[in-house]
């Protein structure tokens, strides 16, 4: 029974991601001049690609943990660019640029020193690539207090999803470890799937609110 619900949530997530991809593709021709939209679109494409690869690896029982590093780093790079285009104050953009360079630099050194870290969850990487994003998200919320506010749903999605899942991933090595009871581990990944579903629903709402009717915005 629990496995059944688990599957439902999983496939709902995949379905919603595909739906989002189609909807954003449809709106793309109207909004291709908007930088933030393009980056969001790329983010969705990469999410879909990574999800597909993960599932293929799963099918063939290949260990796919190192894909998570691509996920974290891609997510960090793309969303950093996303927030650079959204946050218009010079000082805020500077903050993102400085954090961006430092994080990439630190991670680069870490993997240069010890590439074995590539086959486990890297706690430092998870922290360094997630925490700045929640900061940017909060800054964007603050900026939107007095303005019309762009991408507020997607911003909310990022804030909730990244904050909560950072905790899961930080304990990732423990959960994916050999000695843990598999049913307990599965429950945790179930929570993660639900959170990802919330993330996708909020992304969908973003599309519905901001991009579904082209005329109202033009």
């Amino acid at each position: 029974m629990t496995e059944f619900i688990d599957d439902i949530v999983k496939y709902l997530g995949i379905l919603l991601l595909i739906i989002n991809f189609i909807l954003f593709t449809k709106s793309h021709k109207y909004y291709k001049n908007f930088m933030a939209f393009n980056i969001l679109y790329i983010y969705i494409i990469i999410s879909l690609t990574l999800l597909t690869i993960t599932n293929i690896f799963n099918e063939f029982k290949i260990r796919n943990l190192y894909l998570s590093h691509f996920y974290f780093i891609f997510q960090f790079i793309i969303l950093s660019i996303f927030y650079i285009t959204l946050l218009r104050h010079k000082s805020q953009q500077k903050l993102i640029q400085i954090l961006f360079v430092s994080v990439i630099f630190i991670l680069g050194i870490q993997y240069a020193l010890d590439y074995h870290k590539f086959f486990k969850f890297s706690l430092l990487e998870i922290f360094l690539t997630s925490f700045p994003l929640t900061i940017y998200s909060t800054i964007h919320l603050y900026n939107s207090l007095t303005t019309r506010g762009e991408y507020l749903y997607f911003n909310a999605a990022i804030l909730i999803y990244i904050t909560a899942t950072t905790l899961i991933f930080i304990l990732g090595n423990y959960i994916t470890g050999e000695e843990i009871d598999k049913t307990i581990a599965r429950n945790i990944w179930f929570i993660h799937k639900v959170l990802y579903l919330v993330f996708l629903i909020l992304t969908f709402l973003e599309w519905k609110n901001s991009f579904s009717s082209y005329k109202t915005k033009a």
Binding site: T138, S144, L159, I160, T163, A164, L167, I191
Partner: peptide, 19 residues
Amino acid sequence: LVYGIIFLVLLTTGLLLFF
């Protein structure tokens, strides 16, 4: 961990509502 996640979700949701 579960309570931690719930706490974080509620916290961020509260923050969003506050804003």
